[in-house]
């Protein structure tokens, strides 16, 4: 609710010059957020549940060819196209974190939000994938993250459970959240630190500074979705 002070506009910067496309973020995200695997056939048929994926494009022709990596996850749009189309308010905007929430309990599975997501960042539980996890492998499921059942949409939450935990911890200790204290699983795992996460409302935070870089751009900027994820152009296109 709006009565609390406006801090914690969480945002992310992904430096594509540093991103090696190694997919550690993909695995880390899956392990943190109880994302079920779907198996060879379903994963190949566009049913992989990856909340974050590394898009790999090619530029040029052999031998002057180079891949271009772009990790794409939910961009936590300020004006999210997915939100207003949900008939039951299952995907809503969090006023506190300024991120886009998916409320699994309310989702009835119209999949409209996913159609309207220009970033194709949403995954749908086509089957009860998480029920197919054999015991005891379900022991590692994160108790802080809902295990989604079939028929609901899901997507990157910026590891909101970690955001909350960090905020609660800071509150309990009577201080503000420190920059870098809260990191989502992808940023935590990223071996080259290409993913920077933090509070965009604090102009001195690492993420704010990075987001002011001259190489900055946002995905599909022309749509006016106001994404919270900023990319820094890679391949040596250096400015400031």
């Amino acid at each position: 609710m709006a009565e609390e002070k406006q801090t914690g506009r969480w945002g992310m910067v992904i430096d594509l010059d540093v991103c090696t496309g190694c997919n550690a973020c993909v695995t880390a995200c899956a392990m943190e957020n109880n994302i079920p695997w779907t198996g060879e056939e379903d994963a190949g048929y566009g049913r992989g549940m990856h909340w974050i994926r590394v898009q790999r494009y090619w530029e040029g022709e052999y031998p002057d060819i180079s891949p271009h990596y772009q990790p794409v996850m939910c961009q936590q749009c300020g004006r999210a196209p997915c939100e207003p189309v949900c008939p039951v308010f299952a995907t809503v905007h969090s006023e506190e974190q300024q991120i886009n929430l998916q409320v699994y309990n309310r989702c009835i599975g119209t999949r409209y939000c996913a159609n309207n997501c220009p970033y194709i960042a949403r995954s749908f539980n086509w089957f009860d994938y998480s029920q197919q996890i054999p015991t005891p492998m379900n022991y590692y499921l994160n108790p802080n993250v809902t295990v989604r059942r079939r028929g609901v949409m899901e997507k990157c939450t910026f590891c909101v459970q970690r955001i909350y935990e960090g905020q609660e911890r800071a509150k309990a200790e009577g201080r503000a959240v420190r920059d870098g204290e809260i990191v989502p699983a992808c940023a935590q795992a990223c071996p080259t630190d290409a993913i920077i996460f933090g509070d965009l409302s604090d102009p001195d935070s690492r993420v704010s500074k990075a987001a002011r870089n001259q190489r900055r751009y946002t995905l599909l900027e022309e749509l006016g979705t106001e994404p919270k994820v900023t990319y820094l152009k890679g391949e040596g296109t250096y400015g400031g």
Binding site: A114, I120, S123
Partner: peptide, 8 residues
Amino acid sequence: GVRKPVYW
């Protein structure tokens, strides 16, 4: 047969 990105 629905899938990503053909949700409908």
